[in-house]
Amino acid sequence: MVTLALTLTMLGCACLYLASPNQKWLSLVPPRRPLLAVGSLLLIAGLASWIAALHPLAGVFVTLHVAMVCLSAFPYSAALRGVWRRN
């Protein structure tokens, strides 16, 4: 259950990151709205699985903190990849 919840949350954040106009993962611009919708759905599913694995309050906070880590790490991963390629 925890693995599922973690995967869903991370995938949701990845979709949200791709939906951002500032994303650097793909060179082409992916369609924004579907990604936003899918990302939100995945996050909600992730939240639901966290709540099922823990108690509601703990589930909310775990989702929030995992999302924070992902959303701050993804831009860095893209930037590091860019640095790697240039060298």
Partner: peptide, 16 residues
């Protein structure tokens, strides 16, 4: 709370 997941999340958030 939230077991090992939160430990790691806080670990990274602390570094960040």
């Amino acid at each position: 709370y939230g077991g090992i997941t939160i430990r790691w999340a806080y670990f990274f958030l602390g570094f960040s």
